[in-house]
């Protein structure tokens, strides 16, 4: 599939944003009283999350053929994961708005309403990420997307990048300390790597669920080769679905991705654990940037490596 930058941008950034929101909500119970009451401490991650989500969303909207009609995308939530994603994304703005209002009016987060809002945002964030994943995971013509690990991958990457951002911007200090942070990073890095490794192994083995014979309605016992394409030059289908990535590039890119999203963050986490550090932010920032970049590469591969069954015709 053609790796469209806007979509890669969108899924990476909005995933990180939702992950950030999720961890922020998780952090609320762990905050000290002052922070919990002021709310200002939460404003930074929430706002940053908003920026990430908004940039992601708008890049995906701009990617549309008719951006001005984007509002129509909310209408089909009963059947369309894209629509559901849109709707859910919007709903997450409700608790967000509440938090914003609350912090400006100095209403404490720890009250009941705050709890509801936190739960809403945490669950909403996860759900939105899962919806994004399901947009792809529900597409049977693209086996690499409808793979069963895809929702988990999307979720783990959102949590992984979200956590790194959260830790970088200081959420750590309130709650879990350097060791906790290190543990979290190691955990999500490991998880992301394991999942992706498994996924890549699968798709490398994975043959398309259809053969050219069944695409042409012919018996399975005859070998069929292409003689002529319908059109000698490229067309929408061959450009959109026919993107082919050389195997050797794909190997190299996978390595780079793993290096960036798992190994570098993990390596940054280790000193955090073993070496007492007053200012771990540079390390965390490095881990964070690397993970985001790695996720970007991973997402690019997610598109570029996926084969659409329509290409059995080509």
């Amino acid at each position: 599939m053609h790796p469209a930058f806007s979509v890669i941008f969108f899924t990476t950034l909005s995933g990180a944003g939702y992950g950030l929101w999720f961890w922020t909500m998780v952090a609320i119970p762990l905050l000290d009283d002052q922070a919990r009451h002021s709310g200002l401490a939460l404003l930074v991650p929430l706002a940053l999350g908003f920026v990430l989500v908004a940039v992601g969303l708008s890049s995906s909207v701009l990617h549309l053929g008719k951006p001005l009609r984007a509002w129509r995308a909310f209408s089909q939530w009963r059947s369309s994961w894209l629509s559901r994603e849109g709707v859910l994304a919007m709903t997450t703005f409700v608790p967000l708005a509440y938090f914003a209002a609350a912090s400006f009016s100095r209403v404490p987060f720890s009250n009941g309403l705050g709890g509801v809002a936190a739960l809403w945002l945490a669950v909403g964030s996860i759900a939105t990420v899962l919806c994004t994943a399901m947009i792809y995971a529900s597409l049977r013509p693209i086996p690499a997307w409808s793979h069963r690990l895809v929702p988990a991958v999307y979720l783990v990457f959102a949590l992984h990048t979200g956590a790194l951002i959260a830790l970088t911007i200081g959420l750590r200090t309130f709650a879990i300390g350097n060791e906790g942070a290190a543990l979290l990073i190691l955990l999500t890095s490991m998880l992301a790597w394991r999942l992706k490794r498994r996924y890549w192994q699968d798709i490398d083995r994975g043959v398309l669920p259809v053969t050219r014979n069944s695409a042409l309605g012919l018996p399975a016992d005859r070998e069929i080769k292409q003689f002529e394409r319908p059109h000698t030059e490229a067309n929408y289908l061959t450009k959109e679905m026919g993107f082919v990535l050389a195997r050797k590039h794909s190997r190299r890119l996978r390595l780079i991705a793993v290096l960036l999203f798992a190994l570098v963050p993990a390596l940054c986490a280790l000193p955090l654990w073993f070496v007492p550090m007053a200012h771990p932010t540079p390390l965390l920032a490095l881990a964070c940037a690397s993970a985001l970049l790695g996720t970007f590469v991973e997402r690019w591969l997610f598109f570029a490596e996926a084969k659409h069954v329509v290409m059995t015709y080509y």
Binding site: G65, K66, P67, L82, E240
Partner: peptide
């Protein structure tokens, strides 16, 4: 008139029957 040109339907069609026009912005 409703299409936003998200291309999702073309991804969902195994038969390659949907064609997006970047000029028109619709499927």
């Amino acid at each position: 008139d409703k299409c936003i040109g998200c291309k999702l339907c073309s991804w969902a069609c195994p038969y390659g029957a949907r064609e997006y026009s970047p000029v028109e912005g619709v499927m």
